[in-house]
């Protein structure tokens, strides 16, 4: 068969790619522009080399609404938050899936359904009462309050349960013959054989944790614990004159970690996503 380039496919995909990548490119170019030029409406699509230093400057910049808290600090908060949420979700979900798949204990199915119920109770539908619980336990403005309520995960538990159920019986029996107790089996066999799933789940959950907005909006009222996503939105809504070049530099910082994680682990992530969500 003779081959000529598939012009139609290139056309459609090129248009799609432009639609999704160009806005990010404009944000990047905007970061390198001067604030004055942007406010006059002269924004060029070509980045200014001299303007690249905004990416460094912005790390020390703090929105006036959150006195003394810099974008650099917010990035650190976001990193800590995303890591604790991702690793915490993986840890407690793997443990509960292990218990549910490998043991028989009273109320096992009730526990399983209670965990599944969290799927049906996103923060969006229980804003006020969750806030009330948080403040009764004095968790407002604490790192625990920012992360712990987000650590329960029905999706991760379901995924681990599926993976664990598929582990061959021979493996379990071999481990038992070798005298391995349940926890030894869990750590030395179950987790290593689930490594690809762990990696995929980590990507999905890191992105989830990093991109949180509503929860920090409720759980944090002083700037010290603002994650970057919240901080950037505050920069455009509270300041009298928005320093757009810095906002865009901060925006690029805010999307960089999840984008890098997704692109680097694309293959695992795509498989994990299509398996986990079904």
């Amino acid at each position: 068969m003779k081959r000529r380039p598939d012009y139609l496919a290139h056309g459609v995909l090129g248009l799609g790619a432009a639609l999704f990548a160009l806005p990010v490119w404009v944000a990047f170019a905007g970061a390198t522009e001067t604030a004055g030029a942007i406010n006059r409406g002269d924004l060029s699509l070509l980045p200014r080399l001299a303007g690249l230093r905004s990416f460094i400057d912005v790390l020390g910049y703090g929105a006036s609404a959150d006195a003394g808290v810099t974008i650099g600090h917010m990035l650190l908060v976001s990193f800590a938050m995303a890591l604790v949420i991702a690793l915490g979700k993986i840890a407690i979900s793997a443990l509960s899936a292990f218990a549910i798949a490998f043991f028989r204990f009273p109320f096992r199915m009730i526990a399983f359904w209670a965990i599944l119920l969290t799927l049906m109770l996103p923060v969006e539908v229980r804003i006020i009462p969750t806030y009330a619980v948080m403040s009764e336990f004095h968790l407002i403005n604490s790192f625990t309050g920012l992360t712990m309520p987000l650590i329960a995960s029905a999706t991760a538990t379901l995924l681990f349960r599926q993976v664990f159920l598929a582990v061959p019986d021979e493996l379990v029996e071999a481990a038992r013959l070798d005298g391995a107790g349940p926890m030894r089996f869990f750590l030395d066999m179950l987790l290593p054989v689930s490594a690809p799933n762990l990696a995929a789940l980590f990507v999905i959950l890191f992105v989830y944790g990093w991109n949180q907005y509503l929860w920090p909006l409720l759980a944090v009222t002083n700037g010290r614990l603002n994650p970057i996503v919240l901080g950037i939105v505050r920069m455009i809504t509270t300041d009298q004159i928005t320093p757009w070049n810095l906002v865009m530099a901060g925006t690029i910082w805010a999307i960089l970690p999840p984008v890098v994680v997704v692109l680097l682990m694309q293959r695992w992530f795509v498989r994990g996503l299509t398996e986990a969500d079904k």
Binding site: N211, V229, V233, A254, I255, V259, V262, Q266
Partner: peptide, 14 residues
């Protein structure tokens, strides 16, 4: 493909 999955990683608020 890489460019097309890019928005998945971007926070809705961002």
């Amino acid at each position: 493909r890489a460019l097309l999955i890019l928005p998945y990683a971007i926070a809705p608020a961002i």
